[in-house]
């Protein structure tokens, strides 16, 4: 890992603090002999945003999945609000998951129910709201992503960008204090990307939602993240603020930052 000014270097002694929403402590994961994550450590303070950068196949999405317990690490700890998700019972894990919103790269909408029902799904499962209140809340979330008129459409009738926005509405349904977002701008036009970035930024600023965003888009990262984590070949290559990344002499970091400027 490249040392960047202001970056702590205390990975062996990671401590869970109340102000920390997410903490990965020397997390490693292999699939079929391929080391996808190797001793990955970083933390995300509550109410802040962290963008995970890196080339395709460097373990960014797997990192997000370990945070919500969809992937169990081979070694290391993943703490959410100070509790290790790897050692939780299913009931405990599900209680923790209710505090986490997850936007999948493919949106992963349930294609057998309408867009509105997709957004209402977590509300129906995990709240005592009345049917009318559930519908109102689902409509409100769809309105936030500009899809209020698509409530009764099936997911198959939506474009890729609309599916992504509907997925975001579902992820926000329970107003989770922690939002994990996997490539929010992938496959979207620049205007829609801006709209989604603005929405996520407002969640962070107004609702103090903690954001962990996987992205290739430095412009999005600049808007959403207080800190950046760059993964390379399953390891944390660099970690720091945008300003620290811009000053970095790490060739990979410079390549990423330069590609943004070139764009």
């Amino acid at each position: 890992m490249t040392a960047i000014a202001g970056v702590r270097d205390e990975r062996p002694a990671v401590r869970a603090a109340v102000s920390v929403a997410v903490q990965l402590d020397r997390v490693s994961k292999s699939f079929g002999g391929k080391h996808v994550l190797q001793q990955v450590s970083f933390s995300v303070a509550k109410g802040t945003g962290v963008a995970i950068l890196g080339r395709s196949g460097t373990g960014k999405s797997v990192t997000l999945r370990t945070i919500i317990g969809l992937v169990r690490p081979d070694s290391g700890r993943v703490l959410v609000d100070g509790e290790d998700v790897c050692g939780m019972t299913r009931e405990h894990l599900n209680t923790t998951r209710r505090r986490i919103g997850f936007l999948f790269q493919t949106a992963a909408l349930f294609d057998s129910i309408t867009v509105g029902e997709n957004v209402a799904f977590p509300l129906r499962r995990h709240t005592d709201l009345k049917e009318r209140e559930i519908r109102d809340k689902a409509r409100e979330k769809l309105e936030q992503v500009g899809l209020e008129s698509e409530y009764n459409k099936m997911p198959g009738a939506l474009s890729g960008g609309m599916r992504k926005r509907a997925g975001l509405a579902r992820a926000m349904a329970l107003d989770p204090p922690l939002l994990l977002v996997d490539e929010p701008s992938a496959g979207l036009d620049p205007l829609t990307t801006d709209e989604i970035d603005d929405l996520l930024a407002s969640l962070k600023e107004d609702a103090k939602t903690t954001l962990v965003v996987v992205t290739h888009n430095i412009t999005s990262a600049r808007k959403l993240a207080d800190r950046l984590v760059m993964l390379h070949e399953g390891r944390v290559e660099a970690e720091g603020t945008i300003a620290e990344f811009e000053r970095s002499d790490n060739p990979l970091v410079r390549a990423f930052m330069t590609s943004e400027h070139a764009g």
């Binding site: 999945r65 919500i68 317990g69 969809l70 299913r90 599900n94 209680t95 998951r97 209710r98 986490i100 997850f102 999948f104 790269q105 493919t106 992963a108 909408l109 349930f110 294609d111 057998s112 799904f121 977590p122 499962r125 995990h126 579902r170």
Partner: peptide, 21 residues
Amino acid sequence: AEIGAMRVTEQIDALEASAVD
């Protein structure tokens, strides 16, 4: 076919992420 499609389109993961077994 239905569950297979849900698997490859991450809908099963989405259920789990929504705190549903």
